[in-house]
């Protein structure tokens, strides 16, 4: 049996197969399916649905960041570091800059994007100049980023009265508004813009065209006269900047401060990456797979609450989906032949 002949939708079919298998294998299927749906979409006035959407916002945002770089054949798996530094920067601007919201919000957003981009560029510099594979360099850079953020909110910028490793809260009037009675904030509009811009640029613009060709084959791009070095860095900068936007939303919309671990433990970055892999580089599918994984996460919490099945079941299912998609789907990453790392 092979999913490959289903072409680019092979991985989606793999997903359905695994999902069915999961439902069949978990004992007490019907009951748990209800718990799952309740956790993901239910609650009073569908409260949980909006929680899922809020989580999906961040996951899809990270997915768009990954999509941009993967599309150019750049295996940037340092989204976590870029996200954390972006979020940290937004929080620091938020608590230190004394300015009206009309100034503060854009300032924090731009600062977060800038720092996210810089961190991605550092990984790029290590590959281009020193030959450290991006996949290794970008990942290694996650650790200092996460630990540095942890240090800042544990020591110099700590909200000491709270007793936790976290920054002070940003001013109430500077926060992104939430939809009434839900945890979903207006950051979702920002992500919708990101999705639209990424997809349109990728398909329609000259830059997107070059980026895709470069992802298919770097030697081809070079001999066609594309400015490959510039495209390389631009792509990484965009990828990092999108991660910065996501960090900004998490701070200004969701937590209203930077809490140590708030962007790492929910695995936003990795879940976003997996959403891209599942969509098999079909860009318009990415928001759907991102939403699916968000629902999987919140649904698993629902099951855990009701039936005491650990929520990490969701992570296991996600991992299996990716493994099966890799084994049965088409090529998931634009990059050269196997073994050319």
């Amino acid at each position: 049996m092979t999913f490959a002949r289903f072409g680019k939708y092979g991985s989606i079919i793999a997903l359905v197969a695994v999902a069915i298998a999961a439902v069949v294998l978990v004992p007490g299927v019907n009951e748990n399916a209800m718990n799952f749906l309740d956790g993901a979409f239910g609650g009073r006035r569908n409260f949980n649905f909006f929680t899922t959407l809020s989580r999906a916002t961040l996951i899809i945002g990270m997915a768009m960041s990954v999509l941009v770089s993967f599309r150019a054949g750049l295996i940037n798996i340092g989204g976590e570091g870029q996200l954390v530094l972006g979020g940290l920067t937004a929080a620091l601007v938020g608590v230190t800059l004394d300015a009206p919201p009309a100034v503060l919000l854009p300032a924090a957003l731009v600062a977060a994007m800038f720092v996210g981009a810089v961190w991605a560029l550092v990984a790029g510099w290590f590959e281009r100049v020193a030959g450290v594979p991006l996949v290794v360099g970008s990942l290694l850079l996650n650790y200092p980023a996460v630990l540095f953020a942890s240090y800042l909110v544990s020591h110099p910028f700590r909200d000491i009265d709270s007793g936790l490793s976290q920054s002070h809260r940003i001013a109430r009037e500077a926060r992104l508004p939430k939809f009434d009675g839900t945890l979903l904030d207006y950051g979702i509009f920002l992500i919708l813009v990101v999705i639209a811009v990424v997809i349109v640029f990728e398909r329609r613009s000259v830059f997107g065209y070059r980026l895709r060709m470069q992802g298919f084959s770097l030697p081809f791009a070079r001999s066609s006269g594309f400015p490959v070095g510039r495209i390389y860095y631009q792509t990484l900068a965009i990828s990092g900047a999108i991660a910065g936007i996501v960090g900004f939303i998490a701070v200004f919309g969701m937590n209203h401060r930077y809490v140590d671990g708030m962007l790492v433990l929910p695995l936003y970055s990795w879940t976003g990456l997996i959403a891209v892999l599942l969509a098999g580089m079909v860009s318009w599918l990415v928001p759907l797979t991102g939403f699916f994984f968000a629902a999987l996460g919140t649904g698993a919490v629902g099951i855990e609450r009701a039936a005491d099945i650990p929520r990490e079941a969701a992570q296991i299912i996600q991992a299996l989906i990716i493994l099966f998609a890799a084994g049965f789907g088409h090529r998931l990453i634009s990059r050269g032949r196997k073994g050319d790392v």
Partner: peptide, 19 residues
């Protein structure tokens, strides 16, 4: 890998360099 981007379409390959 140099002359063509195999995963791209015929049209995409044809406009490479004059895009």
């Amino acid at each position: 890998s140099v002359g063509l981007a195999l995963d791209a379409t015929v049209a995409e390959n044809i406009i490479a360099g004059v895009e």
